[in-house]
Nucleic acid binder design. Structure first.
Length: 230
DNA sequence: ACATTAAAAGTCA
DNA sequence: TGACTTTTAATGT
């Protein structure tokens, strides 16, 4: 088994070993609930807060004026978001939207700064999650630059598999209510192209798919598609 | 090689 | 039933 490498834009639990610092930080926060579809912050808005998702699901994405969207990350339990914009004092560069009912801790930036003076280790907590985001962004640029449609879809499947897949009798399943449109927005492809590639992979017997669900039948063969010349 | 558009079929609350 | 998701085909860049 290869060492786990957190390269999935589907992010679950990015706080690692700083539970004490997290408690301190969250003690200055206000918890708020968001409904599915509700916007938490908007691209271009001045940033006064950053956020910690306790439970639920949030997507962070960049929108074009025409409504088309590039999802940067989808996040679940115990993850920070909006933290990059918070500390450089520039406006949010992306929009955060609740995908499911979500419990969110809102942390005022000044409060966090005051707290960090007293408990410097809290900054490691934030640095860790920012670096993970930075890594994700870089890796996405790599994919968008170098991979064709088939490889992008295969790659996102492999990443999701490592991050949120779970084993069953006849394969590993990704069951995260991701639509083809979500996958398209993550990979920078059109919805239809994602469907076509998935159908092709199913015909090769590498995956089988259900509604908002992908079962990986042959991971090794799937990985080998990443090696093929374009 | 992939996007766009449109229309139709499938699925779930 | 109506909203959402997926499939399929034709056409455009």
């Amino acid at each position: 088994m290869a060492e786990y490498f957190p390269d999935s834009p589907y992010v679950v639990d990015n706080v690692g070993g700083f539970s004490e610092e997290l408690m301190l930080l969250l003690s200055t926060s206000a918890t708020k609930n968001y409904n599915p579809g509700e916007i938490i912050y908007l691209q271009g808005e001045p940033s006064k807060y950053f956020y910690f998702l306790k439970d639920g699901k949030v997507k962070v994405s960049i929108f074009k004026e025409d409504g088309s969207e590039k999802i940067l990350a989808i996040q679940e339990n115990n993850t920070f978001f909006g933290e990059s914009a918070a500390f450089d004092r520039y406006p949010y560069f992306a929009t955060a939207t609740a995908m499911l009912t979500s419990r969110v801790c809102c942390i005022k930036i000044e409060d966090a700064e005051t707290l960090i003076q007293k408990h410097p280790r809290i900054s490691f907590l934030i640095i860790t999650s920012i670096i993970r985001k930075l890594r994700l962004l870089g890796l996405q640029v790599e994919d968008l630059t170098f991979l064709d449609a088939q490889k992008r879809v295969v790659h996102i499947i492999l990443k999701l598999l490592d991050e949120v897949g779970f084993s069953t009798k006849d394969g590993i399943v990704i069951e995260k209510r991701l639509t083809h449109e979500d996958l398209a927005s993550l990979t920078g492809l059109s919805r239809v192209t994602v469907t076509n590639v998935l159908n092709y992979l199913e015909k090769l017997n590498l995956i089988s798919k259900g509604r908002q669900k992908i079962m990986i039948i042959n991971k090794d063969k799937l990985s080998s598609l990443m090696e093929e010349p374009t």
